[in-house]
């Protein structure tokens, strides 16, 4: 299915075929990063602004590398040291950047829906690099790409997401993306971190399981979320140590999962909180592959969003 969208705001609005197109394109783009000259001229002459209202290492570097490997020109901008600290509004900041003739805006913002808001009046393409607790579509896509490489296909596969489901945009993008292509998703975490009506999220809903061993029995892939201390206004569990005792993924816990089950983590890891040292460095961990795939996925997204006619995909 052709990809005709002008923006990538989230996986919720994509059709399964569009997700597959992105993953297929990303598979072929992975090879570019192996070449002696890691660069193709596909986005030559395009200018992309990376606007990061929240801290980021992986995502930001990954986007920047993806842009450079497609020969786009890039400018980066973060909250500190910019006019944002002088009180400029989001709309004004982005419109000013746009006035300098930027073709695409890659943005991370702490408010859910900030991208949707901008898409309503901005004529540049917008790619969501994470918005609040809503979605982180490129992370969802790179997780799916990594699972697909290891499991062959995603339809009918079981994926367990463990951790702070409530605050996690990674969980939301994973749930939307995976359920759309026919995978079964189980979520597991403290009940204080389980949002209301989580069961009905995604296409066909997800299973909720509070016992980690039961949650991963039969799982083809486990995606461990980071405990985001910076997002928790109230303490939702008694202590880090207690969280590790109950929901930490340790070698012993992993024994409940099938032999072929892979372990993923979007990073940055809190070793000894949500994931044990031995698991993070173990044979089943594909965490660094996820990072490698992230560049390919972001190249695919930028390439697909930059090209194409936009009639059918423009939201609103």
């Amino acid at each position: 299915m052709p990809f005709n969208r002008k923006h990538l705001l989230g996986l919720e609005e994509l059709a399964a075929e569009e997700i597959t197109t992105i993953l297929d394109t990303a598979d072929t783009f992975k090879e570019i990063s192996e070449r002696p000259i890691k660069k193709v001229p596909a986005l030559r002459g395009k200018t992309i602004a990376n606007v990061f209202y929240e801290n980021s290492t992986r995502t930001r570097i990954s986007f920047e590398l993806a842009e450079k490997r497609l020969s786009a020109d890039t400018v980066s901008f973060s909250k500190t040291g910019s006019s944002v600290s002088k009180g400029e509004t989001l709309r004004d900041t982005v419109e000013n950047i746009r006035a300098m003739k930027v073709d695409m805006v890659v943005m991370r913002h702490g408010s859910s829906g900030a991208h949707r808001f901008l898409a309503n009046f901005l004529d540049a393409s917008i790619v969501n690099a994470g918005d609040g607790q809503h979605e982180h579509p490129t992370q969802g896509l790179l997780d799916m790409m990594t699972m697909r490489q290891h499991l062959g296909h995603l339809g009918g596969r079981n994926v367990t997401i463990i951790g702070d489901i409530m605050h996690s945009r990674v969980a939301r993008s994973n749930i939307w993306g995976l359920t759309k292509v026919g995978a079964k998703v189980t979520v597991c975490g403290p009940s204080t971190m389980m949002p209301a009506e989580i069961e009905s999220l995604g296409e066909g809903g997800v299973t909720v399981e509070y016992d980690i061993r039961k949650a991963i029995a039969g799982a083809d892939a486990i995606n461990i979320l980071r405990i985001q201390l910076e997002r928790q206004k109230a303490r939702l569990f008694p202590s880090m140590r207690e969280y590790f005792e109950v929901f930490g993924v340790t070698p012993e816990v992993l024994e409940s999962a099938p032999e072929h089950c892979i372990v993923m983590h979007p990073g940055p890891m809190n070793r000894g909180v949500e994931i044990a040292q031995e698991v993070a460095d173990g044979d089943r961990a594909v965490i660094l592959e996820q990072v490698t795939n992230g560049v390919a996925v972001r190249m695919a997204v930028l390439f697909l969003v930059a090209g194409g006619s936009f009639e059918s995909g423009t939201p609103e």
């Binding site: 072929t28 090879e31 570019i32 697909l304």
Partner: peptide, 10 residues
Amino acid sequence: ISQVPIVGET
């Protein structure tokens, strides 16, 4: 071109 072509393997 209006439609991005599918990229094949290199």
